[in-house]
Amino acid sequence: MLMNRKMLWGLFVVAYSLAATTAFAQYDQSYSGFYQPFTDVPVEDYDFQWFAPPITEVYGQDGVDPKTGPFFDYHRFYVNVTRGEAAPDNSQGDVTWGNKIDAGWMSDEGHGWLLSTLHIDGPQVAERNVGSTVSVGLNKMWRLDQFHSGLWIEPMIGVRYFQFKDQSLRVSYEERFFPIRQIVPVDNHLAMENNMLLGQLGARMYTHRGHWKLYGEAQVFGGNNWVYRMNQDDTYSTGVVGGEWTLGAAYYLTRELAIDINWNTIYMGRGVGRNPYASSGDQQQSLFMSGVAFGFTFHR
């Protein structure tokens, strides 16, 4: 009986593998590079002239096509982060700094990968808004045929890990009478740690005018949030949805190097834990982060 079950499971795995291989092969015939992570990197064709004069023609005219190959973007992010409902003046937010890095690859066949990271160490407004954010996302991209007036659109689909720690109510105050009467801050080490695993779907849009590249990006995501109340042995999970939007402009100083500025907004809907006390139960709070980012762009 045990042997028969093993044989059945083995046949199931083989059949599933053959079906998946056939399905991927069909997709790859219709959409070149649908599932394979990389293509050949033609390093021998690259001239490494990072400071060559910029291309100023409009995409789609005079045979000028969007850039292919590797790309790397770095931005310093000045962002406002909203406060939780239990924090004083919860309708307000506080500003802090963060770092954003995007890196990836676009092939000549019009498909590629995008790795996006975000780290915000703050805000650090004691008792009102103390927290930190880490986000890592991986997207598969495709470049569609050119639209009107040199507009290009790149749909993408992927996954994201998003962690947000809220420590706004970590410190409380106690009245003590020894050696004298005084109000003493006490660090209770209470915090909420949100660990979100999200699927995401979106698109990048851009066009080129002279030295300028104008672009926008939108993503929506949803998934599960595992919430951990630190030092209270109380963990629960809940669903969460949200979105991210970016509008920006890059000015090319050379053929491949540009200075860049954009406005970026991240919104997490109801489902974010921001009150560390177990008596509050499963929470349904939101998180809104919005601000300006400036940095540089390297696109081959």
Rank of each mutant, 00 (worst) to 15 (best):
N4D: 06
K6G: 05
M7R: 15
M7N: 14
G10Y: 10
A15R: 01
T22Y: 12
A25W: 10
F38Q: 04
V43D: 09
D47F: 08
Q49T: 11
W50P: 04
T56N: 10
V58S: 13
Y59C: 04
D62W: 02
G69K: 14
V81E: 11
E85I: 12
D89R: 13
G93E: 11
W97C: 05
S116E: 07
S116Y: 02
P123I: 01
S132P: 00
S135Q: 11
N139I: 02
S149N: 15
S149K: 14
G158F: 07
V159E: 09
R160D: 15
Q163S: 15
D166C: 05
Y173C: 11
Y173W: 07
I180K: 09
Q182R: 04
G199F: 05
G202R: 09
A203Y: 00
R209W: 05
W212K: 07
L214K: 06
V220P: 08
N231S: 08
D233A: 14
D233S: 09
V240W: 06
V241H: 14
T254F: 11
E256L: 08
I261C: 10
Y267R: 14
R270H: 13
V272Q: 12
P276Y: 01
S279M: 14
S279L: 14
V292I: 12
G295W: 12
F296I: 03
